[in-house]
Design a protein around this nucleic acid. Structure first.
Lengths: 182, 182
DNA sequence: CGTTGCACTGCACCTAGTTGCATATGCATC
DNA sequence: GATGCATATGCAACTAGGTGCAGTGCAACG
């Protein structure tokens, strides 16, 4: 699962321009509820993004503080974000999808909805596999002990995670779908 | 979130001895339902573990196939596994905890149960924070549109994930607790 | 006036992990 | 007999990311 920090930063900067330092704070809070990135990584990626022409820098002098480099998404960055939002990514995890959802307004939300549908079915299939394993290997769970019980509990974790994912995807799709109509 | 692949391998090898190749297959399947590791990484870690005296190697000649190196957990490895299973790790994610649960029988299951309780409360707290944000920032979700809607949906994802985690932790704790009595 | 502390950026080094390639054995298949 | 596939191991090079350290500027505390 590659993190695609670039795109998370593009989304965040699209919402509001900011410096590397500010972005670090944001990743510690709202975005970073499920995502973490050190300032180092952010500075490095910002540099790379600047070289790629995805962002523009603006050095801002501040009173009482060192200068800061405020980054803004440039045309190249907007184009890339639109491309990425529309591109199917079978390897994307919930975190990447959350970034796509959060950035949907900066591209085509219906494309994001399509991606959600694809992932919903992938997770539904996996959930099905888990449930079949559960039925086949653990027909009477209350009798389990030791090692077998522990294996069962881990499987239960997988089932709960997938259930949650599928329900979430449904919620997201329904909401995006209704929004389209409005 | 460092993966602690060493410990996952220790657990897997405790269940059954095997070669690097076999471990790679296992990580693709049962364990790797939520965990991935390439053969490269596994070979490298096995080498490191051998040097650390956690595993012992046994070269086995096979008919019709190249030789394989079968790894077994040694005393040093068992000690380390017991230590790791009992050690609290606030930075552990659900994946690491799943490994601990799966390996509980090779250490002290009640210590693992304690760790589960700790994480349960951490996730319950986080869930509470999310729910407060939900109530405060999105009092009437059905009216949301665009960007605000998308932010809300991501928050919903976080809430669902945490809910699932907490429920799972409860299930695990209850099961481990009953097992203790039996 | 010195120290502490925050805002802000950055370098150098380390670890974990992936990708691509190499190599060897033996089977089945065309 | 060649080609391809599965088993089995490994090296070399690369990427992503984290850790440690360092420096600047200014403000507030004592």
């Amino acid at each position: 699962m590659h993190m695609a920090l670039e795109h998370a930063i593009l989304v965040s900067l699209s919402e509001r321009a900011g410096s590397g330092y500010e972005l670090t704070r944001r990743f510690e809070k709202s975005i970073g509820l499920f995502w973490s990135a050190t300032h180092q990584q952010i500075y490095r990626v910002l540099k790379r993004m600047e070289e790629a022409g995805w962002v523009a820098v603006d050095v801002v002098a501040q009173s009482g503080r060192p200068d800061k480099k405020v980054y803004t998404v440039s045309d190249g960055g907007r184009t890339e974000l639109v491309r990425w939002l529309a591109e199917p990514d079978p390897g994307a995890g919930p975190v990447e999808l959350a970034v796509k959802i959060r950035g949907a307004s900066f591209g085509d939300p219906s494309k994001v909805a399509e991606e959600i549908v694809r992932h919903r079915s992938a997770h539904a299939e996996r959930l099905d596999v888990y449930r079949q394993i559960e039925k086949r290997d653990f027909p009477s769970p209350s009798a389990l002990q030791g090692w077998h019980l522990h294996q069962y509990l881990v499987l239960r974790g997988g089932i709960r995670v997938e259930e949650g994912q599928v329900e979430w995807f449904d919620e997201v799709f329904t909401a995006l779908h209704h929004e389209k109509d409005a």
